[in-house]
Amino acid sequence: MAAIEARGITKRFDGGGGAAVDGIDLASTDGEFLVLLGPSGCGKTTLLRMIGGLEPPTAGDILIGGRVVTDLPPRARHIAMVFQSYALYPHMTVFNNIAFPLQAAKLPKETQKQKVGWASGILGIDHLLDRKPRQLSGGQRQRVALARALVREPNVFLLDEPLSNLDAQRRASARDELQQFQRRVGTTTLYVTHDQVEAMGMGDRIAVMDQGRIRQVGTPLEIYDDPADTFVATFLGSPPMNLIPDGASGLLFGFRPEHFVPASDATGDDAVRFPFHVHRTEYLGAERLLYGAVGETRTIARFPANADLPIHVGATSEFAVRRRDLKRFDRETGLRRDQIRGIG
């Protein structure tokens, strides 16, 4: 087991203009499940590939287990990686796929067999060992890729969107399995995804990335409740956080759609009131969304589907947000202006 650390990591591609990864400092703790979350093109996969040694950084250092590995090739880093495409060796059986890292390490045949048996047992694919990858379903392929990563008991797991090739239903259960699996083996894991549900559901901590920089690092709770800036505030949450410009202070008021309730439901004088003009409602089974505007700004409110709402489309009514659910952001920089927790 070992912690991962990036120190001032920068990556510029030839002729690419700006930096794909721009001076990132990030450290995991030992055994942590750390998620890199960001929109596509934010540099999260590039960062992962640099940690894995597949891409040389332009500047900065990578440490694994406290040792600088920046100039070491991937095979010397004792890491395991699971790719979005799973990258199974198509001409090899499942057994040989899983045994490949062991063969490369020149372990005795008997040990190889034992370890493949152990890893495939954990992932429940021991009955598939004679098959070729093309004879497997997406979920089975993903388990083979995980078994191949697990079998050599690496210091670190690097996972690059390993669930994105599964259908929605399979993905939900795979998410659960993957997290349980990580808890069981306790290996430090760096997990790249653009899917906030995966990030929120699996990560011990989340590092939110945008344009080659880390915007915030924190637990899912910290990231969701206390976004460090307007990017994090609007990237997480579906629908995203509402941002209302405040004329008096020159700040942006941010609040989650589920915290935006009719003024009559807001108890005490702790609430900040807004006139909310409702344009349309959307019924989504478990919840109901109200689309509308506060002043000129598009605003969304969210309620459980069974909530009693005396709201009419086209009408304006008094809504409110509790003061502690209201976040303040600088209108120019987008940064938080009030007290927050967990900034990276």
Binding site: G52, G53, P73, R75, M81, F83, A87, A104
Partner: peptide, 8 residues
């Protein structure tokens, strides 16, 4: 890449 990481 996988072969690289797998130590080959």
């Amino acid at each position: 890449d996988a072969a690289n990481v797998d130590g080959a």
